[in-house]
């Protein structure tokens, strides 16, 4: 565990907490894409299938449980909670997320480190995580009216990805035989997807204005 990895995990955790805060206290999920949240729930479910069979550390297991629990509970809130579900931008959140899942599954079947059930699903989760933010970014673009919490949520998620890249660079130079092209390329693609959002986020922060995306 290095400082970049820890910083990445903590920003990831913070992003989830910000989203839960918005849902729990304001009882609103306005501007949040259910499609993206469902994709994250699938990402964690397929990646952490090994939670019972491979033990790394108490930290890892605890974090896995937190990410699994929070992603599924966010989906539950947005779909079934009587107040929260009414604030969901159903008509705007129309990204067909099934069209992301199939190519990711095919790619995982073709390109992986090992052809085993767990490894293919692990790889699928990497590919899917890379593109899971897309419905959220499309929704932002459509509604254009972004509240602070939603903006912070996406900013923190992007920060998490940035720190993970630093973590890989650090591990590459400090650990022998640490080479994971699939993880790195998927992670890089994922981080690049945030670039545009980051640009406008910093612009609004610099000018001390409310975040607004161009049409």
């Amino acid at each position: 565990m290095n400082i970049f990895r820890l910083a990445g995990d903590m920003t990831h955790l913070a992003s989830v907490l910000v989203l839960l805060l918005k849902i729990h206290t304001i009882k609103s999920c306005a501007g949040v894409s259910l499609k993206t949240q469902e994709l994250y729930a699938i990402v964690f479910a397929t990646r952490y299938l090994d939670i019972l069979t491979s033990f790394v550390s108490i930290y890892n297991t605890l974090m896995k449980l937190i990410f699994l629990g929070s992603s599924f509970s966010i989906v539950w809130y947005m779909k079934y909670h009587k107040t929260v579900r009414r604030t969901y931008d159903r008509d705007q959140d129309t990204f067909r997320h099934w069209f992301l899942m199939l190519p990711c599954l095919l790619l995982a079947l073709l390109i992986h480190e090992k052809f085993t059930f767990f490894e293919v699903l692990w790889t699928f989760s990497l590919y899917l995580e890379a593109v899971a933010i897309l419905p959220q970014l499309v929704l932002l673009q459509r509604t254009r009216n972004i509240d602070n919490l939603t903006g912070q949520y996406i900013f923190l998620l992007g920060g998490y990805r940035g720190f993970y890249i630093l973590n890989w660079i650090y591990r590459y130079f400090t650990e022998p035989h640490y080479v994971h092209w699939i993880t790195w390329i998927a992670g890089l693609v994922q981080t690049l997807l945030y670039a545009d959002f980051f640009y406008y986020y910093f612009l609004s922060w610099k000018n001390n204005k409310k975040l607004q995306l161009p049409a």
């Binding site: 990895r5 995990d9 990831h12 090994d50 491979s54 790394v56 550390s57 890892n60 974090m63 896995k64 990410f67 692990w122 993970y164 973590n167 591990r171 650990e175 022998p176 035989h177 640490y178 080479v179 994971h180 993880t183």
Partner: peptide, 10 residues
């Protein structure tokens, strides 16, 4: 030396 795993990451 065995290959370092990325599976110890989240």
């Amino acid at each position: 030396v065995t290959k370092q795993s990325s599976h110890d990451e989240l």
